[in-house]
Each structure stands twice: as C-alpha cells, then as structure tokens.
C-alpha cells in the first residue's frame, strides 16, 4: 500500500512546511503561533473533507459539499451578527447560527412518510442563499467591520489562540474527533446507499433515521469548524473526489484518506496564503486557486 505511505509522507511534509516556512525567522513565539495554525489546519481541512465524503455518500451526489446543507452559511450569518454586535468574531454566535439554520433546513425538509433525504439538499441550498443575502445586508449596515466578515466568509487559520479561547477551541476539537469516529462507523451503510435508497432499505437500513443522524452530526461538525476558522470552501467538495480516485469507492478506506488529504491540502494552501504576497490572503481563496488546476489534472488522468 504505497499510496498510503505517499499520502502520510505528504501530510508530514505539509505540517513541517506549515511550521518552518514563513517571512520571519523561527523563534519560540512564532513557533507557537505556527503550531496552533497547523493544528487548526489539520482540524478544519480534515473535518471539511471528511464531512464532504460522508455527505456525497449519503446523497449519492458528487456536487454536494459541507456547505450545501446550509450550516456553513448559517455559521457565517451568526458570526456576522456577532461581529456587528461586539466587533469581533465570536465562535459561539457562529455556532448558534449554524445550528439554527440546520434545524430550520430540517424543519422545511421534514414531511410525513416521505423521503427526507432528497428534500434536504433543496432546503439547504435555498437557506444558503437566504443567509448569504442577510450577510450582505449586515456588511452594508456594518460598514467598517466588513474586513472581519470577509475573513469569516473566506476562512482564516490565523486565529489568535490565547487563554480567553484556548479551552473552548480545544473542547470543540476533541468533541469533533469523537463525532468523526462516530460517523466513520457508518461507512458500510454509505457503500450500500450508493446503490439507491430502495436497495439500502431492502438490506435493513432505516433511511429516514440514517439521514437525520448524518445530517445533524455533520451540521454540528461544520458549525464547529466554521465558528473557529470561517467558511473555507472547496476542500469539502474536491478532496473526497481525489480520495475516491486514489483509494477506491469503499468508504472504509476513502473516508480516513479524505481526512488526511483534506488536512494536507489545507496546510499547503495556508502556507501559500501566508507567503505568496505581503498581505495575507484568506486561505479559502488559495484553496480554489491551487485546488482547481490540480483537480482538473487528476480528473483528466
């Protein structure tokens, strides 16, 4: 299994790069800053790609990504409201926004005895649009806070971790890892769902219950992620595809690979975003700039 080895080596290289490369020389303080960036990068990149893989499996749709279901836009909306009220990014507001919109999407999609799964996508997309418009409204009202909201929308790993938020962030990361393991238990179900809902039902999967579990758990995870580092795009859409190209259709293999590849990809993108210009670019800009050509290359091959 030398693909696995290659991926692990890439991952370690990306992590080292995240710590060693930068405009200033390495000292104790800089090391701490960069280490927390690397930890946040592994957390966010891994979770976004993992959730993308899970959701593409559940919906049998290659275009679904973590933000399709509205929870990321909800987090951005909540975060923007927080900025408008208090002037700084506040993870609690972002998380409440994500949870609120998630619940709202579920309520719209819910019908008696119908297929919840297919309605979730449309409800999620519609709510995403609504949230984006509301964020624009807040940006217009807020005026001078626009810059902070931009980072929330495009993603930023340089969150200052200090005594005021260290405990919160550490707790969110630990809870997220527990949820990831919980979701990973369903890899067999996701394999089966790729053959259609009736097949899955016939094999004993309760689709309604399964969709609810996956929807709420991924919404929580995405809410956690966006509330800390903002809505970093593209990782959750593209990395699962790359993972499937490399490791095959079995979710037992491609989900963990998605996690590691997502982390690697985000670390590389963050290093680029920190070093390519004098100003730091939002990392979400770099993920698409770097990711699209790479994906086209792999896809054509």
């Amino acid at each position: 299994m030398n693909k696995l080895l290659l991926v692990s080596v890439l991952f370690i290289a990306a992590a080292l790069m995240g710590i060693l490369i930068g405009p200033t020389a390495l000292n104790g303080e800089i090391f701490q800053l960069r280490l927390s960036r690397v930890i946040l990068g592994v957390f966010a990149g891994g979770i976004l790609a993992f959730c993308g893989g899970i959701l593409q499996g559940l919906f049998g749709n290659p275009l679904v990504e973590p933000y399709t279901l509205g929870s990321a836009s909800g987090a951005a909306l909540g975060g923007s409201i927080g900025i408008l009220l208090f002037g700084t990014i506040n993870p609690v507001f972002a998380f409440l926004g994500s949870l609120g919109v998630g619940l709202f999407v579920y309520t719209i999609a819910r019908i008696e005895g119908g297929l919840l799964r297919d309605r979730l996508i449309l409800a999620g997309v519609v709510m995403s649009f609504l949230c984006s418009s509301l964020v624009m409204v807040i940006m217009v009202i807020g005026g001078r806070e626009l810059y902070e909201i931009l980072y929330l929308l495009m993603g930023y790993l340089g969150v200052i971790v200090d005594s005021s938020n260290r405990l919160l962030i550490a707790t969110l990361i630990i809870v997220s890892f527990v949820l990831v393991v919980f979701l990973y238990r369903y890899s067999r179900e996701l394999d089966i769902i790729s053959q259609g809902l009736e097949t899955a039902s016939g094999l004993g999967i309760n689709i309604q219950k399964f969709s609810i579990i996956i929807f709420f758990t991924t919404s929580l995870l995405i809410g956690f992620t966006v509330s800390i580092v903002g809505a970093i795009g593209f990782v959750g859409l593209i990395v699962p595809h790359i993972s499937k190209l490399l490791f095959g259709p079995k979710h037992l293999n491609n989900l963990p690979a998605s996690f590691i590849l997502g982390a690697t990809f985000l670390l590389i993108a963050d290093t680029v975003s920190r070093t390519i210009t004098v100003y730091e670019l939002p990392v979400g800009v770099v993920t698409s700039l770097v990711g699209v050509p790479f994906f086209i290359y792999l896809y054509k091959k």
Partner: peptide, 9 residues
C-alpha cells in the same frame, strides 16, 4: 428485495 434496475453510482 430485488428492484427493477439498480443504478450503481
């Protein structure tokens, strides 16, 4: 249960 035609995505 076997359905009419299975689509393998």
């Amino acid at each position: 249960f076997v359905c009419q035609e299975t689509h393998f995505s």
